[in-house]
Amino acid sequence: MIRTLAVALGATLMAGVVAAQAAIITGAGATAPAPIYQKWAEAYKAKTGVGLNYQGIGSGGGIKQIEAKTVDFGASDKPLAAADLEKFGLLQFPTVIVGIAPVVNIPGVAAGQLHLNGQVLADIYLGEIKRWSDPRIAGLNKGVRLPNLPITVVHRSDGSGTTFLYTSYLKAVSPAWGKVGASDSVAWPVGQGGKGNDGVAAYVKQTPGSIGYVEYAFAKNNNLAYVDMADREGHFIAPNEQSFSAAAAHAEWRSADGFAPTLLDQPGANAWPISGATFILIYKNPGNAASTESVLKFFDWCYAAGDGMASELAYVPLPANVKTAIRHAWATEVKAGGKPVYVAH
């Protein structure tokens, strides 16, 4: 008797869980965009009742989870190569743009006072420029008093999309950086590793003469002394939403490349040289068309209504033409039984 009751109760509970699951999108991956995905999810749930369970487990984890089909979408800071997308039948599209800012702790030097270019930055991170008084740094900073202090290089200790973008930039601008290469963790020639953006920020704050790199949102919220970088034409510009947008505006975003043009060191006035997009991965022929449809509906809504929220958190929204191209790719490439899963209006 009791057993029958328990079975009945269990069945009811199970049914409840299944019903609740239908209204939840699951995703996992990159940690850097996790705050904006969560903010979007909150607003979306309030509006539609459909929730998002996003786990910021790291880009590597996100790629593994979507390959194992345990989530509705994966998220990665590091774009997958077109060949890998092809192999797994995945569609990749960006959500927001993030910028990386070098930050320093030099006594007497405020935010935006220090000017560097890619070459010099790479030489610092290679350990070839060892002191702030080095003539190569002084040459870019006429009129700024730089102390004769040893340079302490700080990098991320954990594998990170931030590191991937930063090392990709150094590789793009400095032939000498080729021997180190670009990845989400590399064999750093010199320096100390801090865990996460806050670990790097703590080391930089605590070490006079140090230089590190963090996501722009982090530098802004913590009042770190960012560095002005030289753009392609040699003008020194500050990291901010405008200079990140300028970098995104000039790139050519094509579905065939997984919507991953390089935004690094792009021509164009006021284009911040160290920025990149963060990506979502979904299946082109999803096993569960309904859940993929809810994923696309969600991101369609984010593109339409989420720009303000992104700016509040210091992420940069995508240009309008890029959003159009992505919506077109959804309608033409994501299909179940030959029919588009979702067509954005």
């Binding site: 487990i57 594998g159 750093w188 320096g191 100390q192 590793g193």
Partner: peptide, 27 residues
Amino acid sequence: GNSHGFPTGIFDSGSTIASTIANEFAE
């Protein structure tokens, strides 16, 4: 301090097995 390789001085940075795994496994 999370730097790979042998420490050369007593104040040098280093890494341990557990810290390396914690740092790099997710990505």
